[in-house]
C-alpha cells in the first residue's frame, strides 16, 4: 500500500477532507477579509489627500487621467469576460480576455509611470494635450501625496498583472474547469478591487478641488 493510499484512507476514515464547496466559501471569505484589510491602507492615503490638499489639487493633465481611467475600466471588463469564459468552459474567450486585461493593465501602468510620473523626463503634446507630467515627489505635499497614492496603486496593478499572467499560463495548461476555477475567480476579484480603488483615487487626484 502506497503512502498516498494510506493518507487517503486515513482522511476518509476520520473525515479530514474538506468538501470543495466549503473550501471555496472559506477561500472567498478569506480573500474578502484580505481586501477589507487593504481598505485601511488605501483609506489612509485617500484621507491624507483631503487633509493635506484641502480643496486644491496639483495641475495634472485631465485628459491623461481620464484616458488612464478608461483603460483600467476596460481592463476590468475583460477580466470579467475572462472569468465568465472560465466559468462556462469557453476556453478561448477566457484566455484571450485574460491576456487583453493584462495588456490593458500594463498600458495603465505605463500611463502612470512613463506619462504621469515622467520617469524618463520626456516632453511633448498631442492635439494640444500635454502628454507628460511635471510633478516631482519632492514638490511638497502635492508631490508626496500624489506619488504615495499612485505608487501604492501602481504596485497593486503590477501584482495584479502578474496574477493574471499566472492564470493565463495555467489556463493554457488546462488547469481550470468550469467546476474548479477558484484561481481565476480570486484573480478577477483582486483585479476589480484595484479598479474600485482607482475609482476613488481618480476624482480625488484629478477632479476635486481647484488647481493650485
Amino acid at each position: 500500500m502506497s503512502a498516498a493510499t494510506v493518507q487517503t484512507t486515513h482522511d476518509e476514515a476520520h473525515g479530514h477532507e474538506v468538501p470543495y464547496a466549503t473550501q471555496i466559501r472559506s477561500n472567498r471569505l478569506g480573500l474578502w477579509l484580505f481586501l477589507f484589510s487593504e481598505l485601511f491602507l488605501f483609506g489612509a492615503l485617500f484621507t491624507s489627500r483631503f487633509v493635506l490638499w484641502g480643496n486644491t489639487r496639483p495641475d495634472l493633465s485631465q485628459e491623461v487621467g481620464l484616458l488612464a481611467t478608461g483603460v483600467l475600466l476596460l481592463s476590468s471588463y475583460f477580466m470579467y469576460r475572462s472569468e465568465t469564459g472560465a466559468a462556462y468552459g469557453d476556453q478561448k474567450r477566457f484566455l484571450r480576455s485574460a491576456l487583453i486585461a493584462a495588456l490593458m493593465g500594463l498600458l495603465f501602468f505605463i500611463m502612470v509611470v512613463v506619462m504621469e510620473w515622467n520617469v524618463f523626463g520626456l516632453s511633448g503634446s498631442l492635439f494640444g494635450i500635454e502628454l507628460f507630467g511635471h510633478l516631482k515627489p519632492s514638490d511638497g505635499v502635492y508631490g508626496g501625496v500624489f506619488y504615495a497614492m499612485t505608487g501604492m496603486h501602481a504596485l497593486h496593478v503590477l501584482s495584479g498583472i502578474v496574477l493574471i499572467l499566472i492564470i493565463w499560463w495555467n489556463g493554457r495548461r488546462g488547469v481550470f474547469t468550469p467546476e474548479r476555477h477558484w484561481g481565476v475567480e480570486a484573480t478577477a476579484i483582486y483585479w476589480h478591487y484595484v479598479d474600485v480603488v482607482w475609482i476613488f483615487f481618480y476624482p480625488a487626484l484629478y477632479l476635486m478641488g481647484q488647481p493650485a
Binding site: Y20, M79, P203
Partner: peptide
C-alpha cells in the same frame, strides 16, 4: 456629487463584477 458618482461606480463593480453576493450563497459544485 463626485463622491456620489464614485460610490455608485464602486457599488456597480462590487455587485456585478466582484459578485459580493456569492459570499452568502451556497455552492452547488
Amino acid at each position: 456629487f463626485l463622491f456620489i458618482i464614485a460610490i455608485i461606480k464602486a457599488a456597480v463593480i462590487i455587485q456585478n463584477f466582484m459578485h459580493i453576493s456569492r459570499l452568502w450563497r451556497e455552492e452547488n459544485h
